[in-house]
Design a protein around this nucleic acid. Structure first.
Lengths: 207, 207
DNA sequence: AAATCAATAACCCGAATGGGGCATATTTAT
DNA sequence: ATAAATATGCCCCATTCGGGTTATTGATTT
């Protein structure tokens, strides 16, 4: 038996979800909330296995609410159920600890599968979301950088100093300095830490 | 009709896969290879829509082969089919441009679904893999760092200088230096770029 | 043949960074 | 109440870094 709690502000959707969950053997909806604040207040006294959660809620956002809930009860699996498929929200949700991310037009059967799946150690995602997530790993070399510059940038991302890079690449420290100056110009940054931050965030080099 | 190419060194598996694919309406296996080298040599003359690919191949590894193939023909979707579920290989494959990652005990029906799915813009993954991928986004604060230190580290990861951090946090530059010294000791690093690299790679801060 | 780009290397100089020690509130835990 | 942890601040000093300028060599392109 999987105990489910629903957090969703739209009453129609909330009720439909509850009916779907309660109408299926092996699933039970033990609580419904229309906002995070009330969910947070009560959740510890009656913790579910899985939370189905909207993001666009009145008051505290689902993302923020998720952080708080995950902090209190880390073992709960939280499944996001929303209309938002924009990069920022998806990745914010995952960073905050969501275990899955479904868009609202998911078929009822698939939704139940997803709840099952998340309990079995999976991470159900809608197709488009899964592709976004997978694509976010892909290396994206900056096309202005030359091969040598990319090599140097990669060394920078290991936290190396000019001197260490020079020794690794068998060139003089001055040449390293030159490459780094060019990298800064092309990436429009002005320091090692800025360059490393940009390179890692935008996956300009293979880690 | 989805055209599939298989790269797999085990003859039994290769033939079974080909039979499965060819025996299903809407799918056709147009080529089979037992190693990347031969696949790379011929692939451009007969490009498929999807490649089913093993990782542990004789000669060139599947990862390396994938890089080369993706470079020649970026529009091909590559589905990894392997027994390896270790972190390193999974993430290397995704960084090299894999669109999906299935383990070899996947049911034949699910495998065909996955091929379909990848062609429709999805990214099919086995449960465990999907969870690994999703978990890799989760913020993982370093437990030794104090709140203030985490705040400072987060500023470092934006590429800020001591002075800029001081202005942002309304403290003196000297205090910023103090916090950073403590951060270095706890993270066992010795420079801003090293700290930023470690923090971003290990997701010690929210980006 | 001329021109452009990539990679190499050097010099100067001032600003930023990193390591050491020291000190004092403030908060938290015992 | 006292001890420990945290956040704040300052000093000294050596090293690293970042910006500017210039130059040579080889490869690629026009």
């Amino acid at each position: 038996m999987i105990n489910v709690t629903i957090i969703e502000d739209d009453e129609d959707i909330r009720k439909s979800l509850a009916i779907l969950v309660n109408g299926t053997a092996g699933f039970e909806c033990i609580n419904c909330y229309s906002d995070c604040e009330s969910a947070i207040a009560e959740i510890e006294s009656d913790p579910p296995d899985v939370i189905l959660m909207d993001i666009g809620l009145p008051g505290m956002s689902g993302i923020e609410g998720m952080r708080i809930i995950k902090n209190k009860l880390p073992e709960i699996d939280i499944l996001i159920l929303t209309v938002h498929e924009d990069n920022q929200r998806v990745f914010e949700a995952l960073c905050a600890g969501a275990c899955g991310y479904l868009i609202k037009d998911t078929q009822p059967g698939k939704l139940l599968d997803a709840i099952q799946e998340v309990r079995c150690g999976g991470a159900p995602m809608s197709s488009k979301i899964a592709r976004m997530v997978v694509n976010s790993f892909k290396i994206n070399p900056h096309e202005e950088l030359t091969n040598r510059e990319t090599e140097v940038l990669s060394q920078l991302c290991k936290g190396k100093s000019y001197k260490m890079i020079a020794d690794t690449l068998f060139i003089s420290e001055e040449t390293v300095r030159r490459h780094i100056k060019n990298i800064y110009k092309k990436l429009q940054v002005g320091s090692k830490s800025e360059a490393v931050a940009k390179a890692l965030k935008e996956r300009l080099v293979s880690t």
